[in-house]
Structures are given as structure tokens and as C-alpha cells.
Design a protein around this nucleic acid. Structure first.
Length: 283
DNA sequence: ATAGCGCCCTGGTGGC
DNA sequence: TGCCACCAGGGCGCTA
């Protein structure tokens, strides 16, 4: 599933290649990806516009578009969330589409930015700034963990007053932006914290260690171009090179101590951890 | 207010 | 071999 490192990898690839390009046409093969926005509105807000830059907020890609009438102020933002199975692909020109092709943006240099989505859970919309402010997930988005100013203090503030196991809280995008199931498990493993630990029982030192682990894991994954998985490929269809230590390795030996990794369900999500390294006794 | 659950969707898997 | 029930999962919206 694309999380912060995967979306950041896509952002970097797009930032290098599409700012300044104009969108000359759009093809909507599956309107479900527009999540209720009409195709004509999507078309009106994209075709003829220029890509200003490529931003990311949590797992959202936000691409400001400028219309010829107001070249200095974005007239709309292309908002993309890949959810579980969405893919963004950059093609050099017209190429065959598969059955999961949803939306294509044709650029003025002939290349095509394509949105594929096997489950149609993902979204691609062209929103105005006021509309974007009304997207709850964006409005409530927590701090960016890779922001240099983010750390244990900020994580502690986000967790203040929150009860329950720490793992589901890490998946809450209002606590930390961009962390999903893979990196929540990886961060807790690196910090040596059991995923069931109740958040209020974490010491200041543990919260600090957890924040450092989140930053380290996300940083390594960005450096590797995202996690190797069947669900994620980069703009050119290539897999990521980051290899998780625990995620999806239930039953396999812990890389640190050799104990069998345990798989449980927590907050409705599959969760893998090391029962030895992640201090079950502290529960 | 906040936590928990169903929902969206389809490929892969395990059981018979 | 074939079929089918079941599972995974991010985030939203509803319910308690």
C-alpha cells in the first residue's frame, strides 16, 4: 500500500518531470476515481492548465494547476490519493491501457500521466482551494514526520489525551501524517515497543525513541524509493527497494533475535511484531 | 467527543 | 479440477 515514502517517491519523480507542462486533454475511463466530481468539472479545471509544482501532504499528492487567465495563482489543485491499490504511471506517449486504467492526463509534450486503480478506492479530483479546505482528511492532517522540526515532543503532543494501543494511533493521520500499516509496524519494531502498549503508558523516553524510529524508517524507505511490494510501483512501473523487517513476515524469524515474529489483529489491521524485542512484558 | 464497525473492491488463497 | 467463501486493507461515515 502506498504510504508516505511511496507517495514521496512519486512526488519527487513528478517534480522532476511535469512542472511547466500544460495539460492538453483528459481521458476518464472510470469515473469512480473522481469520487463524485463530475467529469466536465474535472476536465474544465485541468485541460489548458499548467502544472505549477508537485506537493505532498501525508499520503496525498497535491498538484497546483494554473490557468492561462491567472498564471500566478493556482486555479485548482489536482488531489490524488492512491489508497490501497492506486498507481500513478508516466508514459512517454500513447500506450495500451489495461482494464484498471481510470484516468489519463495528456501533457503538451505528448507524455501521459495515468491513474490506475484495481479497487477504485483511490481518488483523483481537481479541487479549488476552498473545496480542499473542506476535505476532512486534509484539514485534520497531522504534522509531517520528516519535517526537520518534528520529533518526540511533537509526537507526545499529538498523543496527549489519546487512549488505547499505540499502533492504531500511529495509523491515525491526524497523529502523524503519512504513516500506514507497513511503517507503523516497522517503527514500533525499531523502537522496541509492543504494538498493544497503551499510549498513555509510554514514557517520555519511549515516545522520543518512537519518533526517532518513525523518522529513521521513513527516511530509509524514501531513500530506497519505497517498499518492495506487489501493490506499489513507481512512475515507470519499477518496484521499491526498501525491505521491511517485520511487516508481512509473521512466523518468520526476527532479524534481530531469531524469535518467530507474531501476527495479530489490532484495530482491524494485520500487525506483526517480535515478542522478544518488543517487550510484551511491558504491557 | 471519541472509539468501533461496516463499507467500498477485486485478486489470491484455502477448503471441499 | 473447479468452485466458492473468505480475507486483506485506508479512510470515511455512521452508530453507540
Amino acid at each position: 500500500m502506498p504510504e508516505l515514502p511511496e507517495v514521496e517517491t512519486l512526488r519527487r519523480g513528478l517534480e522532476q518531470s511535469i512542472p511547466g507542462r500544460h495539460i492538453t486533454d483528459v481521458l476518464i475511463a472510470n469515473a469512480k476515481s473522481l469520487k463524485g466530481q463530475s467529469g466536465s468539472v474535472f476536465r474544465d479545471r485541468t485541460v489548458g492548465s499548467r502544472v505549477v509544482r508537485v506537493d505532498r501532504r501525508g499520503k496525498y499528492l497535491l498538484i497546483p494547476l494554473a490557468s492561462p487567465a491567472t498564471p500566478d495563482t493556482p486555479s485548482a489543485f489536482l488531489c490524488v490519493h492512491l489508497k490501497m491499490r492506486g498507481q500513478l504511471l508516466l508514459k512517454d506517449g500513447p500506450a495500451p491501457v489495461d482494464r484498471y486504467h481510470c484516468v489519463t492526463l495528456v501533457l503538451d509534450d505528448g507524455r501521459e500521466l495515468r491513474f490506475h486503480d484495481m479497487w477504485t478506492w483511490g481518488e483523483m479530483r481537481a479541487l479549488t482551494e476552498p473545496e480542499m479546505a473542506g476535505v476532512g482528511g486534509l484539514a485534520r492532517m497531522g504534522a509531517e514526520p520528516l519535517d526537520p522540526s518534528w520529533g518526540g515532543r511533537e509526537l507526545a503532543t499529538s498523543l496527549a489525551g489519546r487512549k488505547g494501543p499505540i499502533k492504531p494511533l500511529l495509523l491515525d493521520q491526524s497523529v502523524v501524517a503519512g504513516v500506514g500499516n507497513i511503517y507503523a509496524d516497522e517503527s514500533l519494531f525499531r523502537a522496541g515497543i509492543h504494538p498493544r502498549r497503551a499510549a498513555p503508558t509510554l514514557s517520555a523516553a519511549e515516545v522520543e525513541r518512537l519518533a526517532e524510529s518513525i523518522r529513521a524508517v521513513l527516511g530509509e524507505a524514501v531513500g530506497g524509493g519505497g517498499t518492495t511490494s506487489e501493490e506499489y510501483v513507481d512512475l515507470h512501473g519499477a518496484a521499491g527497494r526498501y525491505t521491511p523487517r517485520v511487516y508481512d513476515r509473521g512466523g518468520a524469524p526476527c532479524h534481530a533475535c531469531g524469535a518467530a515474529l507474531e501476527r495479530i489483529r489490532l484495530g482491524g489491521r494485520g500487525t506483526v511484531f517480535c515478542p522478544v524485542c518488543q517487550l510484551a512484558s511491558a504491557l
